[in-house]
Design a protein around this nucleic acid. Structure first.
Length: 294
DNA sequence: ACCCAGGCGGGCG
DNA sequence: CGCCCGCATGGG
């Protein structure tokens, strides 16, 4: 019989809805509640639930987690330590971004587990959000550690995120049964490395560029996926993931529609937004998608 | 029936 | 380097 651990943090400049809906690893993992104002997700051996009520983010958890750790997890996961005022100042470089900030105010970049982030973004390539979520869920249901916790007279069941050690042992054809498609071999390869010689944790100490170079040694991790992992796993602010949308948006908004190389766009972003480039990317992306630039 | 989805790896000139 | 192609899968 276990009780929920409960807590709350005062929040300002925070929108759980925009943060959770912005296709970050959290989004792929979580179950959503009422209208994006609450969600639950597995964190290691615990089940975490959060609910956003105006100026307060209420949270609770059951399972293998302590009160201190839970508080830290919430602050880190939802980017509550980010100074949004300063970041908005950094990225208010033009009307396009100013309007995006106005529209998506409170959207924060989450900080997720390193393996979790790596796996989610390997799956994300040449894929859509709905399917990514489905695949992550199937992998979790099939290969994640099963937890059963009795609380308040009923039994709560949930699976932890699948560990690389477990995924590394599966046959590619079995991984494909979860809908992973051609990415199955990448998943197995990355899982083998990350459960062995390749230490994701050790990259935290490296610079953005050095860590990026290392991550791209993993199968299925190229320039874009590496930047996603660096931004939403390692929380390297200068990471600027360039997908087809961002490429198009940057070309239209800042280069009069002229085609630019990926390399060019990276140096443009670095020069213009520096350590806030990742935030600029998120706000460019969501406004760019919503207004469908001609 | 077709078309596409927040790319990557491999092969080519 | 830069370019081009194939790639599993399922929803619109």
């Amino acid at each position: 019989m276990e009780d929920w651990i409960r807590g709350g943090v005062p929040v300002s400049e925070f929108s759980l809805r925009y943060t959770a809906e912005s296709a970050q690893p959290l989004t792929f993992i979580a179950d959503f509640g009422n209208n994006g104002m609450s969600l639950s997700y597995p964190y290691k051996g615990a089940l975490v639930h959060v609910e956003h009520m105006s100026k307060n983010l209420a949270y609770r958890a059951v399972g293998r987690i302590g009160e201190m750790e839970l508080g830290k997890e919430i602050r880190r996961r939802f980017g509550l330590g980010d100074n949004l005022e300063r970041i908005y100042d950094d990225i208010s470089t033009d009307e396009f971004l100013k309007k995006s900030i106005k529209e998506y105010r409170g959207m924060r970049i989450t900080e997720n587990g390193l393996w979790e982030t790596t796996l989610c973004f390997i799956i994300s390539q040449f894929n859509n959000v709905k399917r990514i979520r489905g695949i992550v869920r199937k992998l979790t249901d099939t290969y994640g550690e099963q937890n059963q916790i009795s609380s308040g007279g009923k039994i709560l069941k949930f699976n932890s995120f699948p560990e690389p050690e477990v995924l590394a042992q599966q046959e590619v054809k079995d991984l494909m049964k979860c809908g992973t498609g051609f990415r199955a071999k990448y998943i197995k390869g990355a899982a083998e490395l990350c459960s062995g010689s390749f230490e994701l944790e050790k990259l935290r100490a490296k610079s953005y560029l050095d860590a990026k170079e290392a991550l791209m040694e993993l199968p299925g991790v190229g320039d874009k996926v590496a930047d996603c992992i660096l931004l939403m796993g390692y929380k390297k602010g200068e990471a600027f993931p360039i997908d087809t949308w961002i490429k198009r948006i940057v070309e239209r908004v800042y280069f009069k529609g002229r085609k630019q190389s990926i390399k060019n766009i990276h140096s443009f972003a670095q020069e213009r937004w520096e350590k806030s480039a990742g935030y600029a990317q998120q706000y460019l992306f969501w406004r760019g998608r919503s207004i469908k630039l001609n």
